[in-house]
């Protein structure tokens, strides 16, 4: 039952693990992809997730987990090469294209993704989503940020408070 020594993945059967979402959907995925999660990596190294067992993820629903695994599967080969120092420029460009499209999604999905990345400790995914949200904020006035993030229009009281705050934070607008 012990995992193969090493070098699996290239010659045939890669080790697979099963993850179970909060709504009880089972996902079978290569251990190498799931191991992008620091949390899962420990369990997998201990031999968990194989056979009929499966690793329950009570904080991640199936829609989110499916998206998370799409990211992990795409990034696993580069991660296996230790950040891929020998990756070709084409590979890197392809990953970048994938990442850009991957986060071109609704704000509520961004929310679920970054929460999952945080809980599962998938650093690359967490910073990808964080950068996307930062890009939504960058270069915008407070009112534009409010609209982008979906705040309701400010009440007159809130508007007055915002105006006073902007005066107080004058240096941030220079």
């Amino acid at each position: 039952m012990a995992a193969p020594e090493s070098g699996d993945g290239n010659n045939g059967a890669a080790r697979m693990v099963t993850l179970i979402s909060s709504d009880n959907t089972r996902f079978e995925v290569e251990a190498a992809a799931a191991s992008l999660s620091q949390t899962l990596q420990l369990t997998i190294l201990d031999g968990g997730g194989g056979g009929g067992d499966g690793i329950p993820l009570p904080n991640v629903d199936s829609a989110t987990l499916s998206k998370v695994l799409e990211y992990c599967i795409k990034h696993a080969p580069a991660a296996a090469n230790g950040g891929a120092p020998n990756a070709t420029a084409v590979d890197r460009a392809e990953l970048e294209r994938f990442d850009n499209e991957f986060v071109n999604i609704d704000q509520s999905v961004l929310y679920s993704l970054i929460m999952a990345a945080h809980n599962l400790e998938i650093e690359g995914l967490q910073s990808l989503v964080a950068k996307k949200v930062a890009d939504m904020i960058k270069g915008k006035s407070p009112m534009e940020i409010r609209r982008t993030l979906g705040f309701p229009d400010p009440t007159p009281e809130e508007q007055a408070e915002m105006n006073a705050h902007m005066l107080e934070y004058g240096w941030a607008y220079e």
């Binding site: 964080a130 904020i137 934070y169």
Partner: peptide, 21 residues
């Protein structure tokens, strides 16, 4: 996580401006 996002702005001014939201 909001801290992680603010640090991605790479600008103390931009980060400070969010405090008005």
């Amino acid at each position: 996580l909001l801290h992680v996002i603010l640090l991605c702005l790479e600008s103390s001014r931009a980060a400070a401006r969010t405090s008005v939201l």
